[in-house]
Simulated scan of single mutants.
Amino acid sequence: MIDTKARRYVQPVIETTAGGALRLGLTPNQVTVAGFLVGIGAAVSVYAGVYWLGLVLLWVSGFVDAVDGTMARQTKSSKFGTVLDISFDRLVEFGIIFALALRFPDVMWALLLLTGTILYTFSIFISVGAVADEEAEKSFYYQPALAERTEGFILLSLMILFTDYLLYMALLFIAVQLITAVQRLYLARRMLD
Rank of each mutant, 00 (worst) to 15 (best):
M1W: 11
M1L: 14
D3Y: 00
K5F: 12
K5H: 09
A6P: 01
A6S: 10
R7D: 12
Y9L: 12
Y9M: 06
V10E: 06
Q11I: 08
Q11L: 14
P12W: 11
E15G: 01
T17G: 02
G19P: 03
G19D: 13
G20Q: 04
G20F: 04
L24Y: 11
G25M: 03
T27S: 15
Q30N: 01
V31H: 02
T32I: 00
V33C: 01
A34G: 04
F36S: 04
G41E: 06
A42Q: 00
A42C: 10
A43H: 05
Y47W: 13
Y47K: 10
Y47T: 06
W52Q: 07
L53G: 00
L53Q: 07
L53T: 10
L55H: 08
L58I: 07
L58G: 11
D65P: 13
D65A: 10
A66V: 02
V67F: 14
G69N: 04
T70V: 14
T70E: 15
T70C: 10
M71C: 04
A72V: 09
R73M: 11
S78A: 02
S78R: 02
K79Q: 14
F80L: 15
G81H: 05
D85G: 02
S87I: 02
S87L: 00
F88H: 04
R90P: 03
L91T: 07
F94L: 12
F94M: 11
I96V: 15
F98W: 13
A99E: 06
A99G: 04
A99M: 14
A101F: 06
L102K: 12
R103C: 06
P105K: 08
V107P: 04
V107E: 07
W109G: 10
A110D: 03
I118K: 05
Y120E: 03
T121G: 00
S123K: 06
S123I: 01
I124C: 01
F125S: 09
F125T: 04
V128W: 06
V128M: 07
G129P: 09
G129W: 10
A130M: 13
A130N: 08
V131N: 00
E135Q: 14
E137G: 15
E137L: 14
E137K: 15
E137Q: 15
K138N: 14
S139F: 11
F140M: 13
F140D: 11
Q143F: 05
A145R: 11
L146I: 13
L146P: 07
A147I: 10
E148F: 08
R149M: 02
E151S: 08
G152I: 01
F153Y: 14
I154S: 04
L156R: 06
L156T: 03
S157E: 06
I160A: 07
L161H: 03
L161R: 09
L161C: 14
F162Y: 15
D164T: 08
D164V: 10
Y165L: 14
L166V: 12
L166Q: 10
L166A: 10
L167H: 08
L167N: 06
L167M: 13
Y168I: 09
Y168C: 04
M169W: 09
M169Q: 07
L171P: 06
L171K: 03
F173P: 05
I174Q: 04
V176I: 15
V176M: 10
V176C: 05
A181T: 09
Q183S: 12
Y186T: 12
A188V: 07
R189Q: 12
R189F: 13
